[in-house]
Design a protein around this nucleic acid. Sequence first.
RNA 1: GGGCGAUUAGCUCAGUUGGUUAGAGCGUCUGGUUUACACCCAGAAGGUCAGCGGUUCGAGCCCGUUAUCGCCCACCA
Length: 1029
Amino acid sequence: MNDLSTTNNQNEQNLPKQYNPTTAQERWNKFWDESKLFQIKSNSTRRNSKGSFCVVIPPPNVTGALHMGHALNNTLQDIIVRMKRMQGYDTLWIPGVDHAGIATQAVVEKRLFDDEKLTRHDIGRDALVNRIWNWKNKYQTRIINQLKSMGCSCDWSRTRFTLDEICAKAVRHFFFRLFEKNLIYRGKRIVNWDTHLQTAVSDDEVVHETVDGNFWYIKYPIVEPKPDEPNFIIVATTRPETMLGDTAVAVHPDPESALNKATNNLKKRIENAPEKEKSDLQKELDEIENRKSSGQLDTLKKLAHMAKNGCKIKLPLTNRIIPLIVDNWAKPEKGTGCVKITPAHDPNDYEVGRRNNLPMINILNKDGSLNSEAGTYTGLKIKDAREKVVADLEKIGLLHSVEERVIELAHSDRSKTPIEPLLNDQWFVKMESLAQSAIDAVQEGEVIIIPERYTKGYVDWLSEKRDWPIGRQLWWGHRMPIWYCKNATEKEIKNAFNNRNDISWTLDEENNTWRICSLEEDLPKDAVKGYELVQEEDVLDTWFSSALWTHSTLGWPDLNDELDYYYPTGVLITNRDILTLWVARMVLAGKFNTGKKPFHDVYIHPKILDKYGEGMSKSKGNGVDPVSVIAKYGADAMRFGLAFLTTENQDVRLVLDFECPECGAVVEQTKKNRVMPKVQCPKCKKNFKTQWAEKDEDKILPEGLMINERFEVARNFCNKLWNAARFALLSLGDRKINFVTINNFLKSDLLEDRWILSRLATTTRDVTQMIETYRYAEAIRLLYDFAWDEFCSFYVEMVKSRLTDSERREVAESILFYVLRGLVILLHPVIPFVTEEIWQRLRDLDSSLESSVAIAGWMKSDESLIDLKIEERFKIFQELLRAIRDVRASRNIPPKDEISFAVKCNSTTAELLKPMEKYFLSMAKSRATQWGETVEAGTLSATVPLAGMDVYVDLSGVIDVSAEVLKLEKEIIKLDGFIKTKESKLSSDFISKAPQQVVEKERQSLEELKEQRQSASIAIKKLQEEIQK
RNA sequence: GGGCGAUUAGCUCAGUUGGUUAGAGCGUCUGGUUUACACCCAGAAGGUCAGCGGUUCGAGCCCGUUAUCGCCCACCA
């Protein structure tokens, strides 16, 4: 090695002691891009041997930048994609982003209002859409760059956007096909109205939040009550202003039996309830029972009777006369037992209204103010109207009482404003048959959801078969391909479109307006002679276009070779939040459009939570930018760390804090500072910027990067791998390795060689299987342990001496490089940059290697190299080595002092270990003196009894005899414990009932324990004799 | 109200179909610059696997139950 100094110096300069992720990322990203390794393969350049493997990215919303949740999602996809590519599949990963209608329009509108105090109505549809496009362009660029910096191996040339022309075409075709099959209809429904965004939102976009509210009890006067009848009906409400739209009050037709039923149910529940809840339930029951004796029930019975006789009520404030009706919806155990019915503003009341043919009075404008139906309250906002209604009722003495109460209030997920239920026209897709097809796909095993436990949620949700509301009153999205034509005859329509099969029409429910659906073309106003066509204003629900993502990205509806080859895709990797909204709809849309499932596997990965246990989201601002983690630890470390977290768990917690760029102090990330553009370090008092910095004055500050222990571990691992490679390369000097002929040396019969080759083959087999079944953490743990504990800590250490021996060098080098290359291949899907960096240096040694590790053949597990006996034998060596090292450390023997030891063992073990003598010297600075059955402890030795062998470490000169005795005594106590347990086990039913193998194992183990005990007590005797001397 | 999940070392988490003395990283402690790596090396201490009951020859794992925590779904005046 001494003669290699010149070359080594050069190499050492090229091989820094610490792996530098930043330069590697730049270099190899550029290289991958330029060599077009990840681009779709045309028919002629496909490998075809294994077929195709395609993945579509869950398109991130263009509302903002990616956070660690996305980083996890995309890391997991890239791991599979890279492995499949290396396995020889024609692999395609299609990237893209989602226009996210409501969410994106909401952020841009908010920005518009915050910055310029303008609303969308001030600037108009075109201007707003224009601004959203700018926003989209900005964030699409940022998102794609984030993905690239993570090392995602997407085909960037195929980046899609759910609102681009290719996707738009797919959307129109999907819509048209549904329309033609009569699966699309329009109807009046109570919708969740977002008064801020002024659009309907689906149930799935509504969140219930607990807020402080009131129960207002209002007296409704009865018109001309008979002497024995009450003058008032009292109703309770949390939304008193809606009384302006009341069209009835309902009471149960048979309050007595309904009340009995309710009390019986409650009694049953009390029986089964846990102790803690019983008292609350009992209170509830008492309250209801009380209704029977207090006369409340009698009143309800009377009211039911009155209702049947056509009793009328004068609605306060409006003085409208409304009926008292009987309906099962009114529950005698709830509220006052009477319920006000507001059919236009409550889903349940709507049903009651329909059943009883009640008028439906809408009192709201789209902006949340009251309309002309509200009389003197017209124009007031809901909140103001509520106050005034309550005040007015009080003034005229009709407010019975007010009760404070915590209520669950529906809020729009996007705007965080309260939802107002309101009767509106809405477009729907009939779900009956579509939902069934998606249920079948999963229940029949065509699509598999992993982990399996999520299947239930998927099936349950679809089983409700609720029709899908697809219209949104937004400006950002796919406009519905629907045109209205009033009063024309069908003949006129037919004439206008003269047998065209890209136009379809149907008459609306009132039979006077045609709805014309066009497949491709935007219909001109005058398409039907003599009539004006008006296009529907609504845009489609975002999920309507994302549902097509697996096939729209491959060019559907145009049937083409790519669609044919790459569809269905291999796996969809996503998180559980959108299993129903997105995944289920992709399955039904895929089946409907192509007749085939969109993917075979659905893998649901854990959700990343912050230190408060909250999921990362844009609205909370707790999303951590992966780029900030990459800047600190490197992309490989981030990927490794994230994938290492990916178990079958539902959630994983990832605690990230800032690192002050000025003084290096850890600045805890708090709910407060995580949304600020700059943060002051509490230690050095200097400011640093965060990912939210936008102003120039903030942007010039140094950035506080995100730190986390798990990424540090991962970074250390990358560095370890790098250094193992560095060692191998430096030891080579100016020699070369020929990877083609390397196999010649795999037959070496040295224990350590056979061992590492066996371990590599085992690891290869297991890791491949783990990744293929999405057990990421397990795969990574195997690689981590193999690379660090076996390859670095043992093989590399052991091979050192052979590398300086010109006769034994060649075999050693070959195997060293063979294993290194194998590790690099196996690790490449997880840590692509450092492995490419190493690969390219291996390639300098032998240019016959593939041009990039990304397209190197995946490791095949050579089963003939797996030798469990060898692995067992090596464990004996490791155990012995550890015992000696332990003696050294615990007896404080200076590292430089050489010691000697003898081992009492059978001849097989002796033969096995004898060739390893040199390793005890190099790895534990200890010299073996004797091996065999007749070996005895020296008088001044430490004795370590192991299974099947005793180790005697010579401690002459340093021994503390009584301490040694003490150690052995402790050991005996421990051994006695084990022996006792085992003996009792072996004298029980265990021997007759447990499998023979297990029993045999126990017996053997007991024998060994007894031998160890024997050895220990002999050793004690010897030492005691020494003391007596 | 329904569903899903979690509870294992000081901290963060592994633990495949039940089978020797329950593992890792970080942190702690002891000792180390030996021809890759201090982002390192060698070693150690630290756990009645949340409680109770059951099934079993045998339970961290299966069943029941209790407690604490989290998430999702649901139209309650």
